[in-house]
């Protein structure tokens, strides 16, 4: 086995949600390790804590106990501002709904994460944005506003946006949950390609059994616990 730092190491992640009498523990000590280049599907029934887990892994939320390391950086031990910088540097997010900024063009939306570090306006950055739009297959829509794009196109823009910071880890929360099967399949193929061609490490929350079946590894979550971890190495080249 190669001696490389795993992209993600999460240990004993615990998270309580809600306040007062409604408060309850949603995750009960979750351990996950993801190696570079893996394409992992996270599955589980609705309410099992998949989104909660994803937010913790992506540094959008603080765990009540446990730790998260992305590429060797400990997310649990830093303040909010530092966490924002780490998210910006290490993580890409794709959501079920294609949250784009409505006032900005497709290209500007793709470049937006770079604005957070004062970039996104150089010739190189714009070239990168256009290249990513080309990779997701809608380079010709670069100047369009989100409302001028179809749902599938908007989700492609969101995927391109999640890649613009060259993230160590791409996190997606039911990215095709809101798309028809043709579009869903196209987005799946896109993820597959990114993983194969760029070696992009991906963790996707999905309900789609097809999706899950076609990934390298399936993590099963049930009631806030990891109850299954299947690796299917034969798909890797």
């Amino acid at each position: 086995m190669e001696v490389t730092t795993p992209v993600l190491v999460a240990r004993g992640l615990t998270r309580r949600l809600g306040v007062g009498a409604g408060a309850r523990e949603v995750l009960h000590g979750v351990d996950i390790t993801i190696e570079a280049g893996e394409f992992v599907a996270l599955v589980g029934p609705s309410g099992s804590g998949k989104s909660t887990l994803l937010y913790l892994l992506g540094g959008l939320d603080h765990p009540d106990a446990g730790s998260v390391e992305i590429a060797g950086e400990d997310l649990a031990r830093v303040d909010d501002d530092t966490l924002a910088k780490l998210r910006n540097r290490l993580i890409g997010f794709v959501y079920q709904f294609h949250f784009l900024l409505p006032e900005f063009s497709a290209l500007e939306n793709v470049l937006m994460p770079l604005w957070a570090r004062g970039g996104g306006r150089s010739r190189e950055d714009r070239a990168l944005g256009l290249e990513l739009l080309g990779r997701v297959g809608i380079a010709e829509k670069a100047g369009k506003l989100p409302r001028e794009l179809s749902g599938g196109e908007q989700q492609r823009v969101a995927v391109a946006r999640s890649l613009v910071n060259r993230p160590k880890l791409l996190l997606a929360d039911e990215p095709t949950g809101n798309l028809d099967s043709a579009n869903a399949n196209a987005v799946y193929e896109l993820f597959r390609e990114l993983n194969r061609d760029l070696g992009q490490t991906i963790l996707v929350v999905t309900h789609d059994t097809d999706w899950a079946a076609r990934s390298d590894r399936i993590l099963r979550l049930l009631d806030g616990r990891v109850v299954g971890d299947e690796r299917r190495r034969e798909e890797r080249a």
Binding site: N88, R89, F93, F99, L100, P102, A116
Partner: peptide
Amino acid sequence: RRDIAILRAAGFSRHD
């Protein structure tokens, strides 16, 4: 609210 969440997730700080 959505835009704010997206900006935060993409690495904008509270201060931003």
